[in-house]
Design a protein around this nucleic acid. Structure first.
Length: 425
RNA sequence: GCCCCGAUAGUGUAGUGGCCUAUCAUCCGAGUCUGUCGAGCUCGGGACACGGGUUCAAAUCCCGUUCGGGGCGCCA
């Protein structure tokens, strides 16, 4: 029975079977060492030449990263980690070709381009694997939170007919004899679920944005963690969001000690109240820092970097001007809305809002954004026959992973990023 | 979409008009060495993105193409 390499330490002085990638084979005149790696770690196998000549000599032709299975005695030794496996039986299951397009254990760092082109090799590196182990913890912690709080998980369509918000470009797809688009957001559908009476829903799914952006924080397909709740306002869902982020941080701190160590990242400590800063206050701070921005203008990247750079923690920007937010965001007064963003420093992690629930407000908002309410009938109709007040938000999973692990490029927190020019692998 | 920068062995780099038959490391191959190390040592292998131009002479200067990185806009 194969055990994980990480479990070998629990089987000292007994026989173990381990399988994985031979990341390094060091051969001396009469003894050789094989470093074997699997998802749980690495261990060294030792083989003496005496009595094993044939096997010993055959290993001289086994390239790095070949798949090998070893059976042998786990013993304490002078190996760096304090124990090793004395090889009794060794099977070369699948030889790797040489040279590797990317050295898995080389001390030389490859460019992100080379790494993404050979992502399966890049992902073998413990640091890179650790990023995605942490990401798994984050999404599961958030999922658990929702499930424990009575949310219903939904799966909304990703092929849609209409734009969601107007602003963002969509990817067109051929849908038999008609034109359709890839969904940029489940926004309209999760609101319809409030009209359907589901009360609290969440969805973890891809979102597609056809913007030709070229930045370290945008990709064209990302994972959106969406939620929507009925009979609540913007403040309520901000509180839920704060709880959710803290639950994720706590879960990472508890279950990813080894990964954080490998990544050289401090355990996320979220033992503070997330500040609520109004948009207008943010504008004031920007002006104090020498930017010339009037109330009503969008917050530019340089402003977010400057003002947000002073706040190296999670915080909300609330009460955005109505004209900067989509039609479905509930007005606060004539000028401002009940829309908010969750930021970390300069980075927008979440966008949320209390939503419009009265059909006449929705229609007037659509018109004032230059959209035709008729083309949103499937959505507006849901508001005509009993739509509760509701609010919700959407987290960018890759961005949340970035800020939790202090990673600068979103491509690092995406398994196979889809950016302006990359659609393979 | 606009602006800036870049492309040299499998990988990461040095190179600033002749000293380039191109540096170093890693890697790959051959040999050597009973123990922890990023193991060592010896020998060998492998590259100037593509197309055009300037020049006696181009990896190096100019133009175009392709690809990549970054900034801005936009957003998660």
């Amino acid at each position: 029975m194969r055990i994980l390499i990480g479990e070998v330490k629990d089987h000292i002085d007994s026989e173990v079977e381990i399988s994985g990638w031979a990341q390094n084979i060091r051969i001396m005149s009469s003894v050789l060492f094989i470093e074997l790696r699997d998802v749980s770690g690495t261990v060294q196998g030792v083989l003496l030449k005496r009595g094993n000549e044939e096997l010993f000599n055959s290993l001289k032709n086994v390239p790095r990263e070949s798949i090998i299975s070893i059976t042998g005695l786990a013993v304490r030794s002078q190996a760096k980690i304090g124990y090793e496996v004395q090889v009794k039986n060794l099977e070369v299951i699948n030889k790797a070709e040489t040279p590797l397009p990317l050295g898995v254990t080389d001390k030389i760092e490859s460019d992100i381009e080379t790494r993404l082109e050979n992502r399966f090799l890049d992902l073998r590196r413990p640091e890179i694997l650790s990023i995605f182990k942490v990401q798994s913890t984050i999404s599961n912690a958030i999922r658990n939170y929702f499930v424990q709080h009575g949310f219903i998980e939904i799966h909304s369509p990703k092929i849609v007919a209409a734009a969601t918000e107007g602003g963002t470009e969509l990817f067109p797809v051929k849908y038999f004899e008609r034109n359709a688009y890839l969904s940029q957001s489940p926004q309209l559908y999760k609101e319809i679920m409030m009209a359907a009476g589901f009360d609290k829903v969440f969805e973890v799914a891809p979102a597609f944005r056809a913007e030709e952006h070229n930045t370290p924080r945008h990709i064209n397909e990302f994972t959106s963690i969406d939620m929507e709740m009925s009979f609540v306002n913007d403040e309520d869902v901000m509180n839920v969001l704060e709880d959710v982020i803290k639950a994720a941080g706590k879960s990472v701190a508890e279950s990813n000690k080894r990964e954080l160590e490998i990544l050289g990242v401090k355990t996320p400590s979220l033992n503070y109240d997330f500040k609520r800063i109004t948009y207008s206050d943010y504008v004031k701070r920007a002006n104090e820092k020498g930017f010339e921005i009037r109330d009503g203008e969008d917050l530019s990247t340089p402003i977010l970097k400057s003002v947000g750079g002073d706040i190296k923690e999670f915080y909300f920007i609330t009460r955005w001007p109505r004209e900067l937010k989509p039609f479905y965001v509930q007005p606060f007064d004539d000028k401002y809305s009940r829309g908010f963003d969750l930021q970390f420093g300069e980075m927008e992690i979440t966008s949320g809002a209390q939503r419009v629930h009265l059909p006449e407000v929705l229609i007037s908002n659509l018109k004032s954004k230059g959209l035709n309410p008729d083309s949103f009938n499937f959505y507006v109709n849901a508001f005509r026959y009993g739509m509760p007040p509701h609010a919700g938000w959407a987290i960018g999973l890759e961005r949340l992973t970035m800020v939790m692990l202090d990673i600068a490029n979103i491509r690092e927190t995406t398994l196979f990023p889809r950016d302006r020019t990359r659609i393979t692998p």
